[in-house]
Design a protein around this nucleic acid. Structure first.
Lengths: 147, 147
DNA sequence: GTAAATAGTTCACGGGGTGAATAATTAAAC
DNA sequence: GTTTAATTATTCACCCCGTGAACTATTTAC
């Protein structure tokens, strides 16, 4: 099979989708935070006990990058730092009531914005697409190359 | 249908794929330029007559952002500026021999890197995935998906 | 008990984005 | 045909985001 053409189509498609969804995000996300800050906030919101190192690993960036992000969110009063008493090196992050409100509101708004778009697709096509996307993600993560 | 869960899965999947492919890009792209710079260079390479405004529109960013990008590429000797003689406001961008070499080499390397990954998928699944991706991109490009 | 490992921070630096203001050029209006 | 408007590219000040090395504090290992 000739992959070069497919890779090119993939690149154009995925960058368009990524960019446009980001544009929609920008419109819906609370105006006081950026889409990157929202992604971090949302990740903390979804985790049980979350440290800077966890986020750095999940997002594939260095720890110092997360320190900055956490500082910005902390300055806005959206998260709090809690030092682990059993191992004082660890600092667990939690969203505040304000942060929680922003995440839940934004998620709702995003769903409202994207639903009419997804409605254009047949149910099987959506599931098939997401399944392939997740398989591709897993392969790239290096989880199960043998399937 | 319940879209919230699907949107969440989409977000996780696409950000993972985007990040991982970007990581592969970083390894393969000429070390003197960034992946963003490569994307710009590749776009100029693919166009016939390309202006800053074209790129800004294609990438969904402001014109001043492109001016900076173009400056960086120009400083590295990868592109040249040609003023349009019939309309002296337009400045057409072209890649130099060095720039062309970088684009072609990187594209080849990327294909080599991604081929073993794509080989894990059945041919129909790849075509189906790319088709859905392109349909999604087209819907997002069109303003009125509200029908 | 000293050395190594780990978690988080700070710092200097660069890439990348915005949006308003500007200069240069062309198109349109009267 | 001059004035006005539109368009292209640039500059500027400002912020967000990332790196990587050096650092502090704490825990673990030998």
């Amino acid at each position: 099979m000739e992959f070069k053409e497919l890779i090119n189509r993939y690149q154009i498609g995925i960058s368009t989708v990524y960019r446009k969804v980001n544009q929609i995000m920008k419109e819906k996300v609370h105006e006081d935070i950026t889409t990157d800050q929202f992604a971090t906030l949302q990740y903390i919101y979804q985790q049980e006990a979350c440290t800077s190192t966890d986020i750095a690993h999940a997002f594939g960036v260095g720890k110092s990058a997360i320190t900055n992000q956490v500082n910005r969110l902390h300055k806005k009063g959206l998260i709090i730092r809690n030092q682990d008493e059993t191992d004082r090196r660890n600092i667990f992050l939690h969203v505040t009531a304000d942060g929680k409100e922003i995440v839940e509101f934004t998620e709702k708004e995003l769903t409202i914005a994207l639903t009419p778009l997804l409605s254009q697709f047949k149910e099987e096509e959506i599931y098939s697409f997401i399944h392939s996307l997740e398989r591709l993600a897993n392969l790239l993560e290096g989880k199960d190359f043998n399937q």
